[in-house]
């Protein structure tokens, strides 16, 4: 089960993630391979290797899942076979 705060490593690339929000039955994949908490390195699905970038937050259309990329990698993130997109954040002036 994906809990907020859980850290996950991709099995197909260097990417690492942290769960911000997720449903109990959501299944996350990176490069087509499940983001199990401990997986030996494997080859990714070439169609799902568009990359993910450190500091970006990834969400689905309904925003029921939100994942922070904490280390850049070549795999792309899917949740229940839907490709996640980056969440746009309003640029705010620095307040501290």
């Amino acid at each position: 089960m994906l809990k907020p705060g859980t850290r996950l490593k991709s099995a197909v690339c260097d990417a690492e993630f942290m769960i911000i929000k997720a449903g109990a039955s959501d299944e996350l994949t990176c490069g087509g391979v499940s983001l199990d908490e401990s997986t030996d390195p494997v080859e990714g699905n070439a169609d799902r290797m568009n990359g993910c970038v450190i500091g970006k937050r990834y969400i689905n259309a309904e925003e029921t899942i939100e994942v922070l990329c904490v280390k850049t990698g070549e795999g792309s993130l899917y949740c229940n076979d839907e490709e996640l997109m980056t969440k746009d954040t309003k640029k705010l002036p620095s307040s501290d």
Binding site: G55, R57, T89, S95
Partner: peptide
């Protein structure tokens, strides 16, 4: 922080 600061901004 995630809501108000852009990483490596």
């Amino acid at each position: 922080i995630l809501g108000s600061v852009e990483f490596m901004g």
